[in-house]
Structure formats: C-alpha cells, structure tokens
Design a protein around this nucleic acid. Structure first.
Lengths: 110, 110
DNA sequence: TTCATATTCAACCCTTCGGTTGACGATTTC
DNA sequence: GAAATCGTCAACCGAAGGGTTGAATATGAA
C-alpha cells in the first residue's frame, strides 16, 4: 500500500476501526481494554490495531506487560486536506460529531 | 454496507477512484472519457463508477448515447464531519491540495 | 521456577474486491 | 433496417480482508 491515502481511507472504511479511534479519542487504552466492548476475538482486534498503526493513525507502546494504544490524529491531516478540496469547508459541527460517536461506538456492555 | 461512512471511506480507499473524483472536479465527463487515461478496461472503470455512485459521491445521467458523470461533493460531508472531530481544524491548504491532485491523477497520455 | 496475564503469530476459512473477457442492451447514424 | 458507438452485465480469476482457533512470546507475580 504505497500511497498513505490508501492506507488511511481503507483503515477508516471499517466500522470497528472507526469505533476504536473514537474510543481512543477519550483516552489511551490497553489492547485488552480496547477489545473488551467488541464481540470479536482479541486477535481480531489486534489485527485492527495493526492496520490502524500501519496507517499511522495510532501508535502502540509497551509499558510492562501492557501495550498502550494512543491516537495519532496528525495522520488524518493529508486525508482531511484531500477531502477539503472537494468543497467541504463547513465549520466543525460538534453536535453532529457527538452523534456519530454514539452511533459508532460499540454497545455499552457494562 | 449499511453505514454511509463505510461506503464513502471504502470508495475513497482506491487510488483509481480518487483520481476519477479529481478529474470530475474539473468538469462533468462521459464514462468513456473518464476511462481514457487509465490503463484498465472500460468495464473496470464502469465498476468503479458504480462504487462511487453507490457511495453517493457521483451521479450518472444518460443523455442520448452518453452517460455523464457528475461529482456530488455533498456526500463527503458526513465523512468530513467525522474526521474534523479528530482535531483536524486546519484551514484549507490549496497548494497542498493541488499537489495531491497532480500526484493522484493518472499520467497524461495526450 | 512456575504460573498467570497480555498480546501477537500462524494457519486456515470464507467473502469481498479489482481485474479480465465476451455477450448484451440502448442509442445514434448511415 | 443495419452498422457503429456507448456502457453495463455475467462469469470467472487471483489477491486481499476480516474472522476464527491454537500455539508462541513477553512480562509480571508468587
């Protein structure tokens, strides 16, 4: 996947990965905790995190036994510039964004 | 593909489709003309146009024997809102966008 | 050392995706 | 009507994607 836009957009194309990014927007998280709300295996989430890391959207750092995942929003920059070129100059609609987050986050199973 | 974000982001994940969108940014085009600069078959381009149309990113209208493709940038709106939520509030960098376009457009074979 | 926890790796399965080719349908032109 | 042009459809192919399970690795705790 030579082109960084390929990597970023295809990473964003999966709803599980977008939900993970939304979760990481709140705070850094351990892999196990990222996986907890989803109904797929830990290995599947680990793969998703690998895709996100390859696209530069997150970084992972081992601290002791735990690997912490951290959002890297800068990776969205080139993709955002690309999209802005198509006339999307609207100001941020924070309410709309919050609705997306709720809709995208996995069901709360606490 | 229930979620519109899935459709939009996975449509954008392919470099051929992004190049098509960039071409349509200049002007509406017939399917044959869209296909001309690419090295794949017309059928392949027709499929790409179908993906873009399904994502709402373009519309197609038959006029006589020719089908005209037209950009629908409004479909990028939800995706842009989603991305803006991750801290991408930078103003449009038109120079950067032009560089992307050149880089993304197929080689000029005139 | 041994055991438990945290995460990834490897092999596999099935579906989707991007491509091809050849046939077909629609429309214009002769 | 017949022929040429425009575009899609259908069937197929190989590669990639998302999932699983079980084994392996790395670290911390007992």
């Amino acid at each position: 996947m030579t082109n960084p836009l390929d990597a970023v957009f295809s990473a964003l194309a999966d709803p599980t990965r977008r939900a993970i990014l939304a979760m990481l927007l709140e705070d850094d998280m351990a892999v196990t905790d990222v996986a907890e709300p989803f109904e797929v295996s830990l290995a599947a989430i680990s793969k998703h995190l690998g895709v996100l890391a390859d696209a530069g959207l997150i970084t992972r750092e081992r601290r002791g036994r735990v690997i912490w995942c951290k959002l890297e929003p800068g990776a969205l920059r080139t993709a955002t510039v690309w999209m802005q070129g198509f006339g999307q100059f609207e100001p941020l609609d924070l309410d709309a964004f919050e609705r997306f987050l709720e809709q995208e986050l996995p069901a709360d199973t606490d």
